[in-house]
């Protein structure tokens, strides 16, 4: 799956939640990605984050992906 497509999708999700307060928007975006994205999609966007710092992601999407990476990394460590 192209990273560009994942970035677009993450930004779309963040676009919806950006009508809410920043904290809620990040929560909403994070929860959405966590609930609906297959692990390989999450791994790919997390790799994109690690590699580029999240190029192309909007601020809300970027914050949500950062949280996603933290949670997934923590889950991997505890597994």
């Amino acid at each position: 799956m192209t990273t560009q497509r994942l970035v677009h999708m993450a930004n779309q999700v963040a676009g919806f939640f950006s009508s809410y307060s920043e904290g809620e928007a990040i929560d909403g975006t994070f929860t959405h990605l966590r609930s609906f994205w297959d692990p390989r999609m999450r791994r790919e966007i997390e790799a994109h984050l690690a590699k580029t710092g999240g190029a192309g992601l909007t601020p809300i999407a970027l914050a949500a992906v950062k949280r996603l990476a933290e949670k997934d990394t923590a889950a991997q460590k505890s597994a």
């Binding site: 799956m1 192209t2 497509r5 609930s35 609906f36 994205w37 297959d38 692990p39 390989r40 999609m41």
Partner: peptide
């Protein structure tokens, strides 16, 4: 963990 949706399956196949 959630799985792939149809468009995601096709993207992943490519």
């Amino acid at each position: 963990e959630p799985g792939l949706r149809i468009p995601n399956m096709l993207d992943s196949a490519v």
